[in-house]
Design a protein around this nucleic acid. Sequence first.
DNA 1: GCGACAG
DNA 2: ATCTTGTCGC
Length: 332
Amino acid sequence: MKRTFSESLCELPDLRSEVLKLLAQVPVGQVTTYGDLARALGDEKTASARWLGAFFKDHDHQHGCTCHRVVRSNGEIGMYVTGDPNEKAGLLKKDGVMLTGLGNVDLACRFSDFHSVKPLKQLKEFQFTLAKRRQRKSQELTPRTFAGVDCAYRDDGNAVGAYVELDSETLAVTFEESVVAPVEFPYIPGFLSFREMPVLLLLLDKVRRRRDLADIIFVDGNGILHPRRAGIATCLGVLINRPTLGIGKSLLCGSVDTKRMRAGDIRPVYDNGELIGNALKTKNQSKPIFASPGNLISLEEATLFAKATMTKHRTPEPIFYADRFTKQLRKN
DNA sequence: GCGACAG
DNA sequence: ATCTTGTCGC
């Protein structure tokens, strides 16, 4: 039996070292692309290609590093760590890679036969198992307390996690807690939970040592409004076996008609014919937010609680307060 | 030019 | 998420 929430999360892969292992497989005279590396990581939709670009831009570049062999899928050389693309072109030429007159590489020498454990594919499988463990029904008890959780990032590699509890009737803040914890996993669309859950689980462990968790926990991020129905609100809710609800501020997947939406309106979000969330608006002029069930809650209730807590701000009060607390703590 | 992906 | 000043509106 697990003692703490933190212990319930599996060990996460070190994506940076996995990428370097893949790079080492690209032979002299050949190149690969950001998309190819993404697929080699087990990310078929190449959602991680952007992160790969950012990673190479400021990785620990040593003499002899072969990161110049990663180019764009359209043949463009792309950026280089040193900031000088010509240097990258020169190294490719020295490698024996054919360059066109416009300075593009000939992708005939493209290498993509990688040997990999496909860490992102493994994490996707984990998401599917968590999605399967999600409980759709609630306990049908009127919640007395709501809580919001959120993270803010500091430039020292740590994140600040904040938990703010509110009275469900008055929406007055009744309790606050926070933690500072290291963050190693990058932000990749569809994999947000692996970046923020370690912080949030520590935070909830800390809260639990002082009091019972709130009846409903609002999470900054989606629940089942996710390509694998495993957004951070769902993953977190399943791991702690508590009711959670996801609040997204932009649409991750699916489609919804938000034309001429007015305050109080509710619009369904569908993905492949499946109803996975609702768009809601606080004010006519503000952009909508997207509510979806995390765990132990129905879409109807998740939407109801989100709407009931949307008063003076764009997001539900628990999310607004957690977000503000988190940014306030980041300074101190 | 198209498509565009939580935080 | 983060980088950022003043400014428009309730």
